[in-house]
């Protein structure tokens, strides 16, 4: 029985070692690409898809998502599969340069190799753009990339997601989506003074979320989090943006719902909801200004 559950988990995660046909890989990559929410940060408002230029304001400065189209000059056209996987897993660029964790490799490190390669295969089917990447606007000392080696040592634990065989396949699928691909914690988990994720308070919200706006506590605490929501409520919210009170989100989450969660299967939304609502509730009131 345990074996069977384990097998299910493996299949659910797409870890099956069977060789994949190229078009299957691209179709799977497209789905995973959506789940990963790549489009948002790598596309300027009204700009060409993945050509970069979207500003992300953080306490460390303003970062601009780079061009990740398959253009060989300005995009990632020359990147090998291994280099792409290394960027996601280790936060290292093609030339060995340290990448800023505004690129959420602390989450993407958990993506399986096969899934990462599928995402790249899909990206390479999209039209290339020769738009140069905009340099980040980051003041001293954050502009010294070598310092990121120290940052990683203190704040980053690399490693692919490992399913918990004591849990259901649904829970594991949800965990993989939340922790690895959808990188929910990058916005919803508080950060320490160095900008590192505070894992002990996972998903409990922060006043300084994306673009310095608050991201709510989404742990199941009934007062300060979403403890009054059930799996149906959360899955429906991820599909429609409509919360149990009939209010409709208009924050950055609206974009996440449009680009990512509304595009997932309803099983995947339910898995995300099951996982999130199973987490330890954290009492943390996120104030708005």
């Amino acid at each position: 029985m345990t074996r069977f559950a384990f097998l299910l988990i493996f299949v659910a995660l797409g870890l099956a070692a069977a060789p994949v046909r190229a078009d299957d890989q691209v179709a799977r990559g497209e789905y995973l690409f959506r789940a990963g929410g790549c489009l948002g940060c790598h596309t300027a408002p009204g700009g060409a898809a993945l050509a970069g230029g979207r500003a992300l304001v953080t306490p460390m400065g303003t970062f601009y998502g780079p061009n990740i189209t398959s253009d060989p000059e300005h995009g990632i056209g020359r990147w090998t599969d291994e280099e792409f996987v290394r960027a996601l897993h280790r936060g290292v660029g093609r030339g060995g340069e340290q990448l800023y964790p505004v690129f959420p490799y602390p989450s993407f490190t958990k993506i399986t190799d096969a899934d990462a390669k599928a995402i790249k295969a899909y990206i390479f089917t999209l039209p290339p753009s020769s738009q140069p990447s905009k340099p980040h606007d980051v003041p001293f000392p954050f502009n010294i990339r070598l310092l990121l080696i120290g940052w990683k040592w203190l704040n980053f634990s690399p490693g692919v997601f490992k399913p918990d065989e004591a849990k259901t396949p649904e829970w594991n699928r949800g965990a993989y989506l939340v922790e690895a691909l959808a990188h929910c914690g990058e916005c919803h988990t508080p950060r320490n003074l160095m900008g590192g994720i505070e894992r002990s308070r996972a998903l409990s919200g922060t006043a300084k979320g994306p673009d310095m706006k608050p991201a709510p506590n989404i742990t199941p605490d009934p007062e300060t989090g979403i403890g009054k929501w059930n799996q149906n409520d959360l899955a429906y919210f991820l599909e429609s943006g409509i919360d149990p009170d009939g209010d409709v989100t208009g924050s950055v989450m609206d974009e996440v719902i449009q680009n990512t969660t509304s595009k997932l299967t309803s099983d995947d939304r339910r898995a995300i909801a099951a996982y999130v609502l199973s987490l330890p509730p954290v009492v943390h009131k996120v104030g708005r200004k």
């Binding site: 599909e239 429609s240 943006g241 409509i242 409709v248 989100t249 208009g250 924050s251 609206d254 708005r288």
Partner: peptide
């Protein structure tokens, strides 16, 4: 149709509402 309606709510909230509570 409820999803279509929700889309119009979200689009407007995104641009014209600053959530405070």
């Amino acid at each position: 149709q409820m999803k279509a309606l929700g889309g119009t709510c979200g689009a407007c909230h995104r641009e014209f509402r600053e959530k405070k509570s």
